[in-house]
Design a protein around this nucleic acid. Structure first.
Lengths: 351, 351
DNA sequence: TTGAAAGCGCTAACAG
DNA sequence: CTGTTAGCGCTTTCAA
């Protein structure tokens, strides 16, 4: 390793490269490559192998992935995209759900020998350029993606897994929770506790989105139990704590009263709880509430939130499994729906 | 773009490359490179420039970063490391703080033309191999990093910014919040509200860590106000909701009573609140509590948590600024301490 | 069982 | 103002 001056004037240790290892070990670069990459069908004498490995260790050799990527077109990189709520702001910020999901994906990817490239995405932006530029081996998109750029994604060589996407598109693999069943479960639980004046609070969102399916489940349950879906008990807004807090007032103002709320996400439910508390309305004594997601924080609020649990850890891990599988069998389209279940805590009372 | 069969048998569209653009535009590859990279000091006729840009667009040309990285040794990639709490589990999972921080860093990096490589890290692992393998241009390490591998990091060509690190090491740039001042501020606020029996709950952690400095601030405030630091009012445990919930009982069991708690993190404070609620102890009527961090969730709990605010968004943005600056002026060591401030909400009462 | 050598696509020094 | 060309470090085919 000799001291060199780079053209930009930065003083740098020249990196050990495969030729250095080859020279010191007295073999060719090919042999070094074979040994270090554990190339199958390439028989190497035990002696040579040991020698190469020893020298590589001695020289602290680390391969240059730019070179191998250039050669073989792969990057060992999975791109994870979390589209942004607001243009230019907040990516995973607004909902802790994303942090939990990401965390799991990163851990799984790492165990499988991949790294994770994390990106937010503005409303109108296209990710396919990044995929090509960085030679990403696979892509996971969480949430919605601008419809006008879906085709560009589809033309990529890299498999794309859509997690909780609004659209169902045969060109992509998809992973969701059983949102409709969960919405139904939540609503039936309220009905089972004697509630009939049940409000729905959820994100105003595209057809086919998770929120939309949760709403459908709400409608299913009402219909099945002979309750009519009253439009004025349905509140649509942003999927945020702030909106929940704000809409609490509107919910309380319903002329006929409301005894229970199904919030389509925990973050909304927690906002509602806060809004109720602000107005001296007690949960669950005065009004019951059930959420959806089972965030880590949902058991931290007081009272602890009754909610529909989705296994976020499993979702993150599964998403990575799916891209990796798709890299091996690109022709097989994968579509998975993860089960949900009810978690009884303290925000619903029997009336 | 012709259809090719790769050696692995995968059918693939051959990528448009710079030679394709050059050929179609009737110029050399050098010219294309100059135009597309906006190379300074390289005067290109407006006509040529326009032609090249047009052709590049027509052909949907996207450069191959493996090739440029190989050539110039840079990746336009910033590595962000979040050491794991438990070996093999939970990276940013346990504390929503990380999600907020990450989010900001990613957004800033993206605006600056970089991508973010996110990694967790086991207790004994070394990141320097990744930095060399991926030619990372800069590294941000959040939290603690295994001391035995610090030297490897220091030898890298890439600048390293330690965010909230335990150690202060001249070989690295560092970014922290003013934890000690914050700890003092919190404790003084309690004292100012008439409290004298003030407990401290915080993570048992290394000397020099954020938690340690917050504790020092607590001690400062007590000393300055003539209160003695009673060891049996100091509770050390894991920085988690669960520990806060559990330790609530111990805090309440103090023979002389405790009227206020300074929790060294919001996640602990919220755990404590929950633990108190479980035991029918009201906040702030029966016991006051103040936290540290001002997480998004801290205003979501009821009552909303009084806490020391640190500007997590600013911290994330600053961290990225610092690595980018360090890439330009590697010789200048940067060390920044961000201010904190008190946010009065509803968990401390005057006695 | 090993080695020689041809690129992968791009940048930038240098020549024109 | 534009083009030629020598690599960057690695993988892999083919020959020995």
């Amino acid at each position: 390793m000799t001291e060199t001056i780079k053209s930009d004037g930065v003083r740098n240790m020249a990196r050990t490269k495969i030729t250095d290892v080859a020279a010191k070990a007295g073999v060719s670069v090919a042999t070094v490559s074979y040994v270090l990459n554990h190339v199958e069908n390439q028989t190497i004498s035990e002696e040579t192998r040991a020698k190469v490995e020893e020298v590589a260790r001695e020289l602290h050799y680390v391969s240059n992935r730019a070179a191998s990527s250039l050669k073989n077109g792969r990057s060992n990189l999975i791109g994870v995209v979390i589209p942004q709520a607001e243009p230019g702001k907040e990516i995973l910020l607004s909902d802790p759900l994303y942090g939990e999901l990401l965390s799991e994906m990163e851990y799984k990817a790492r165990r499988m020998g991949y790294h994770m490239l994390l990106s937010g995405l503005g409303d109108d932006q296209d990710y396919s350029g990044v995929v090509r530029n960085r030679l990403l081996d696979g892509v996971i998109i969480v949430g919605s993606y601008p419809a006008e750029h879906l085709s560009d994604l589809a033309e990529l060589h890299a498999p794309v897994v859509l997690v909780d996407a609004c659209i169902s598109d045969a060109r992509f693999h998809e992973l969701t929770a059983d949102d409709r069943a969960g919405g139904k479960l939540a609503t039936e639980y309220l009905i089972g506790h004697g509630h009939t004046k049940i409000a729905y609070v959820g994100e105003k969102s595209e057809k086919g989105s998770a929120a939309d399916k949760r709403y459908a489940g709400y409608a299913d349950a009402l219909a099945e139990h002979g309750l009519s879906l009253e439009r004025d008990r349905v509140y649509h807004g942003k999927n945020s704590f702030a909106y929940g807090e704000k809409v609490a007032e509107t919910v309380l103002a319903h002329p006929d009263g409301t005894t229970a709320v199904f919030a389509a996400s925990d973050i909304l439910a927690i906002g509602l709880m806060h809004g109720f508390a602000l107005r001296g309305v007690r949960v669950p004594e005065d009004i019951s509430i059930i959420g959806f997601d089972d965030l880590l924080v949902s058991r931290m609020v007081s009272p602890a939130l009754t909610t529909i649990h989705q296994d976020i850890a499993a979702k993150g891990e599964k998403a990575v499994d799916m891209v990796l599988d798709a890299m091996v069998t690109p022709e097989k389209r994968q579509s998975e729906t993860l089960p949900v279940r009810l978690v009884e805590r303290d925000t619903v009372r029997r009336i």
